[in-house]
């Protein structure tokens, strides 16, 4: 209990201390604002450019969530295909791995050419999806393979259909694996979306990454910090929500394993 309180309190105290020191240091050594703006200056950016920043954040968040949902659905679907057909797995998994290990920034220009700069948002979506897709596929495949063979036999013995076996056995068995992969995918979808926005590097995407590039070109360092802050916040909230969903689904039969 004591440990848990500290776990929450320590980061907050450290954060307050650091911000305080930062504010003090900027004034004390008269750091020019185009190198390091004070926390106060960053906050004022939200007053002056709040609307445009939030609008961009909204766009990046939308792409991230769309890519995330696509990644979860397609990753699971392909994992089910792999689990039901060794042939399909042998044929397709090298491509999935190749797509995963090829740096997404390198693929970006090609995708952008293909979909056209007018549809830059689509390119960003595709790239974010590529990044987020693999952890779902890998974890779901591992989960589906980890089904207890005796339980599988039992389902066969009682002549369960594919639907019954899938819903009552495969999904629940693989859930802990799947959720770990989904949690990773959430963070990666955001990374992918931002990287893709940088790669597209045009006002057509209008996401937070574009705001950061734009502000950087104009030496509006405080605005860069503000955009970064929004991105970090987005990532943390996404992770927190996914962790909570994981806890909600697993804590009764799985979560306490750590203690056991």
């Amino acid at each position: 209990m004591m440990m848990q309180g500290l776990r929450l309190l320590l980061p907050i105290a450290l954060f307050a201390g650091l911000v305080g020191f930062w504010e003090w240091a900027v004034v004390r050594w008269q750091v020019p604002p185009f190198i390091l703006p004070s926390p106060g200056a960053i906050l004022t950016v939200f007053e002056t450019d709040g609307a445009s920043l939030l609008g961009s954040a909204w766009i990046t968040l939308g792409t991230t969530l769309a890519a995330f949902v696509l990644a979860v659905i397609s990753g699971m679907a392909l994992a089910v295909l792999f689990a039901s057909s060794r042939l399909a797995e042998a044929a397709l998994s090298p491509y999935a791995v190749t797509l995963q290990v090829t740096p997404v920034v390198a693929i970006a220009p090609l995708i952008i050419v293909w979909v056209g700069l007018d549809n830059a948002w689509l390119a960003v979506l595709i790239l974010a999806w590529i990044v987020a897709f693999f952890p779902v596929l890998a974890s779901a495949t591992a989960g589906l393979k980890a089904v207890d063979p005796n339980l599988r036999d039992l389902f066969r013995l009682y002549r369960a259909g594919f639907r019954q076996t899938f819903l009552r056995l495969m999904i629940p068995s693989s859930l802990p694996y799947l959720l770990a992969g989904i949690k990773t995918a959430g963070g990666l979808a955001l990374v992918g979306a931002v990287v893709a926005e940088f790669a597209a590097a045009s006002g057509n995407t209008d996401g937070l990454a574009w705001r950061i590039l734009e502000a950087g070109n104009r030496l509006q360092i405080a605005k860069m910090f503000a955009a970064l802050l929004l991105l970090a916040l987005m990532g943390v909230v996404l992770y927190a929500i996914l962790s909570f969903v994981e806890w909600l689904l697993l804590h009764r039969w799985h979560g306490d394993r750590r203690r056991a």
Binding site: L151, L154, Y158, R168, R252, H254
Partner: peptide, 29 residues
């Protein structure tokens, strides 16, 4: 269907389901 019961060396239960849910499996299937 249902004319055969099988008990494995391990209990082979569904970890996510209650005792009643586990015991009801053959009927529900």
């Amino acid at each position: 269907r249902g004319s055969l019961g099988f008990i494995f060396q391990e209990p082979t239960l569904m970890a996510w389901a209650s005792a009643a849910k586990n015991a009801a499996l053959p009927l529900e299937l």
